[in-house]
Nucleic acid binder design. Sequence first.
RNA 1: GGGUUGUUAGCUCAGCUGGUAGAGCAGCGGACUCUUAAUCCGUCGGUCGACAGUUCGAAUCUGUCACAACCCA
Length: 512
Amino acid sequence: MTNENQTNATLQDENEQGEFRQNQVVAERREKLKKLRGQGIAFPNDFDRTHMAGDLQLLHGDEDKDALEARNIEIAVAGRMMLKRVMGKASFATVQDMSGRIQFFISQEGVGAETYEAFKHWDMGDIIAARGMLFKTNKGELSLRCQELRLLTKSLRPLPEKFHGLTDQEQKYRQRYLDLIMNAETRKTFVVRSRVVQAIRAFLTGRGYLEVETPMMHPIPGGASARPFVTHHNALDMDIFLRIAPELYLKRLVVGGFEKVFEINRNFRNEGLSTRHNPEFTMIEFYEAYRDYKYLMDLTEEMFREVTTSVLGHAVVQYQGHTINLAEPFDRLTITQAIRKYHPGQYTDEQLHDRPFLLETLRRMNAAHHPTDGVGGLQLSLFEETTESLLIQPTFIIDYPAETSPLARRNDRDPSITDRFELFVVGRELANGFSELNDAEDQAERFMEQVRQKEAGDAEAMHYDADYIRALEYGLPPTAGEGIGIDRLIMLLTDSPSIRDVILFPQMRRED
RNA sequence: GGGUUGUUAGCUCAGCUGGUAGAGCAGCGGACUCUUAAUCCGUCGGUCGACAGUUCGAAUCUGUCACAACCCA
């Protein structure tokens, strides 16, 4: 099996190599590289860049042509050649670096006949560098009048067509580097992603939170209901699981006295792929002692408002044709209130608490549900079937049934529900938070119930984690904790229709 | 898992009811010292996703498969 795979892989590589060599454009470029090698150092690494294109545009983009010329600003800029306009003895090249683009003006009298002649044969996609004076062309475009021009890295493969760019979704995901070269929108998405994560960090650390890292490899998968990835540790000869959530470890830290902790990291769930699901995805989980789920809802609103405003400059975002207002307080509804609000007149409160009615309704709708569930579980199924997708504006759904919330604290007035919420925006779950269950004996019973469900065939039911119970037995202070799906949040803030648009290298099937 | 659409040159795409495979960009050669997807002239480049079938003849019709995007579960 292994041997066969290796043989196939090798053949595949050779095949790919063969095709690669045969391609005429690539062959031309390899020939050019060969000449470069013959002329000396083909991949120089001694160019000192002094300026970034985007900074120059910001600083001098609006400056007067003559005034700029008089200032004699010498700059050294490098980047990828994206456009090239060759004329007789003077040419223009558009060069792109991480910050933006700037135009090079290359003339025979500026760089010399020899370099100019060489430049004519450089290709789009090559990494080039120049030193010279900043000026504005007659048309008013900020440019670099090259006195020194160098080819730093020869590009062997041609870039996508310069006007249409790279549009094929699959190629954008598989060859993200090309997507990043070609599409400013893609670059922007991932810059926003980075800034959002930074802003969340700043928000929490500014409130005294400690950022921590807990294991990605778990002896017992826990903290969520999901199927894990399994692997094996050879030296210990034990199966281990990629984590499905960090929750149980973070709460152990609260037991340890780290009363405000958060972790931003990957979770892994062995489930289907969709526009909303990638097998590895990023979550932030945060826990704060001596707080409850209501405090978390307030904190979440504040965080969303502050992060969005600091990154985008405003808290009203457009998402796939919807206008989402993150500035106003979010709606807060119980499951049954939400069903009734979004289906006015359709159900009475009595009906929504009538188990046979709920069962019959779900059956008629052909909706996914567990027929053995109690009223709470059935209400939740009805909510998911009929109402979830209608929650466009940010909405907290509260009072989740205890039977589907094995880690959440029971409500004081009604022990069948928990002090828990989920946050929905554009019909998607973005966050999940609750007052933590800190009663070790209740937690032990709930784990036992999960084990019974697992034995009854529910692959997503939780395991009994004895060490976690032991930790709770030392005493977890009253604590509130929450998880936010970072990828889905970024989707919302970058108007991205698919989770793959916000993950640099999304999971794909193998190419061969 | 089901449905819809797609797969043609390095890239973006045409190609009608079957009759010798097309354009633009990129490449190569030439002209051009202020261009902006530069322009102009010339030129190279294809196992039409794979396999099978129908046919005198298939990029085109049929079937199977592979992969992808979107929708649904």
